[in-house]
Design a protein around this nucleic acid. Structure first.
Ligand SMILES: [Mn+2]
Ligand SMILES: [Mn+2]
Ligand SMILES: [Zn+2]
Ligand SMILES: [Zn+2]
Lengths: 157, 157
DNA sequence: TTAGTAATGGAAATCATTTTCAATAAGCTT
DNA sequence: AAGCTTATTGAAAATGATTTCCATTACTAA
């Protein structure tokens, strides 16, 4: 039963099974919600969405599954500073959609942006290579977030 | 008593007072610890260090002060995924020391790096300008972190 | 002084996430 | 199809970082 690092091929059935995980109703439900919701959902958000159709899937399973998924690199666990973790699919059914985030520190609005992504990604690639070598790190991921005030919030009091 | 956004001049006495905050023993102690510790301290870490000398400063005050400080932009509140917030001074007594982070997802070791900082900062400046205009955001801060396995952890089992 | 208000600490409350544990279900082997 | 092994599960309880309460104290300005 090979666990651990199982970067694999296609979509989830195979990936899951290939890594020794069992494919259960709850796990599929969660993945489905993540795939179609296209947002930044908290564990509880997901629970709310899964519950109507699968009332027997508990919050604990949501947390556990999210953990497995982010361990497999299928899901990113994000922190926007609002006290709860948020999750998004690493890549949709039809390929990646790499983006970074713009976060309003006042109302917590989050914008996905892809502008400048190419330049950023290129620089990141080089940086990762350089840092990896210099500090002997095997870099697998990065986070770039800009914080500030959205239009609505900067025109407040 | 002008509160809120008080981006100011020099070092803390002035900044604090200028923003209508009172400079108290506890606050000074916390700032001192942050200034000399040069790490990524949690609220409790700070409490531990402050307590011997100022046994009458409570954890609650640590949290409150840290909040004020990050509100003033004097301190960065960081999340490395280990379940507690960590703090670092935004700029030391002798000027800024802008850096980004390299985080081991296994042992939570954190490395401050300044390599590539110039290129990164330049790109960030442009990106901020572009994003700010396009999304009508007043960007005040950014976070760049690379995640991966440190040498020790990548050579594990 | 004196009043007005900011700041404090200790205890209690919050609340997201984890842990425990007995029950159940997946996938594999007959 | 039935049995077996063990991953997975849900509910409830535990955890633990951060907040909130509130009565008390410390500043500041007039
Ligand atoms: Mn996103
Ligand atoms: Mn740092
Ligand atoms: Zn906003
Ligand atoms: Zn490590």
């Amino acid at each position: 039963m090979p666990r651990g690092n199982c970067q694999g091929q296609g979509w989830w059935h195979g990936k899951f099974r290939g890594c020794g995980y069992r494919l259960t109703e709850g796990r599929e439900a969660i993945l489905d919600i993540l795939a179609k919701s296209e947002g930044h959902l908290s564990a509880e958000d997901i629970y709310m969405k899964v519950h109507p159709k699968y009332p027997n899937v508990g919050l604990t399973t949501i947390y556990r599954t999210l953990d497995v998924l982010s361990g497999l690199g299928m899901v990113y666990k994000l922190d926007f500073g609002d006290g709860r973790a948020r999750y998004e699919l690493a890549e949709g059914p039809k390929g990646a959609h790499h983006h970074h985030h713009l976060v309003c520190t006042d109302c917590n609005k989050v914008i996905d942006y892809t502008d400048f992504i190419d330049e950023e990604v290129e620089l990141l690639r080089e940086t990762e290579k350089g840092l990896g070598k210099k500090y002997n790190f095997k870099i697998t991921n990065h986070v770039i977030q800009f914080y500030g005030l959205c239009g609505k919030c900067s025109g407040k009091k």
